[in-house]
Computed example of a mutant assay.
Amino acid sequence: MNKLRTLIVDDHPIVTEGLKNLLTHEPNIEITEVFYNGRDVLSYMKDHIADLVLLDITLPDINGMDLCKMIKQQSVETIILVFSNHTERSIILQSIRNGASGYLLKNSTLAELRDCIAEALKGNICYSREVAEIISRPSKNGSDHIPKITRRERQILSLLSEGKTSQVIGQELFLSPLTVDTHRRNLIQKFGVKNVAELMMAASQHKIL
């Protein structure tokens, strides 16, 4: 059986050492590298293959949710499991939108981690027991799912829905087209979508338009 080439990404040495010791005797896992920041991971993955990444959210240089997306852009086949202390529903959901195959809290058991890895290998989304409970709770007024946008972003969203280009929007709002493009990219990221068409659908579903 080929072992999963596994990276651990966490800025706390006690956590990385604990995970290494925990997974040392797992027959299907080989810890190939440990990283304490996001940039080193991205640099490593330019020349190396990783089958599995155990990723923390709080890193000193790159937000773990953003790093998740960057890793998937470099290596779509890599399985990412977020391993974090953050219990906010919005963070969990955004991590999954950004390409994570699962989300576990750091108080998870080895059995939960094994189960998550097995499910992720099948192509499924997986959670530790406590995270699954958080996900299953009704959100308060659905507020977890509605991205917070600025007044300017709302203006640009409205003009995009009318089919206007960045050039035209810039002229109407006295902004450069590059500034409009930046706002558009920020909106796409906030809503966790891929393009303007999906952005319009998401904004409509949230009754923002």
Rank of each mutant, 00 (worst) to 15 (best):
K72Q: 12
L110Q: 13
V82A: 02
K72Y: 10
F191D: 08
A118G: 02
L105K: 11
Q167A: 05
T179K: 07
R5Q: 09
P60R: 01
Y103N: 09
E17I: 07
L23E: 02
G102E: 06
K20L: 04
S139E: 10
H145T: 08
I117Y: 06
R39S: 15
T179G: 01
N21I: 05
Q189K: 09
Q94F: 00
D56N: 12
I149Y: 02
E162Y: 12
L173M: 13
L209M: 11
L104M: 14
H12D: 03
Q74H: 08
E26N: 15
S139W: 05
R151M: 11
L81W: 04
C126M: 04
H183F: 00
L159K: 12
L23N: 06
F35R: 08
P60Y: 05
N85K: 11
K46N: 05
R39D: 14
P177S: 07
K164Q: 12
Y127M: 07
L105M: 15
Q189V: 02
N124P: 02
E172Y: 01
G123V: 08
I92D: 00
K46P: 00
S43A: 15
N107C: 11
S166I: 03
Q171M: 12
G99A: 05
D115P: 00
N2I: 07
L22H: 02
T6D: 03
I135W: 05
I169V: 01
T78A: 11
K122I: 02
L93S: 06
L59K: 09
P147Q: 03
G102A: 10
L67T: 01
I71Q: 05
D181I: 06
R129A: 14
N85W: 12
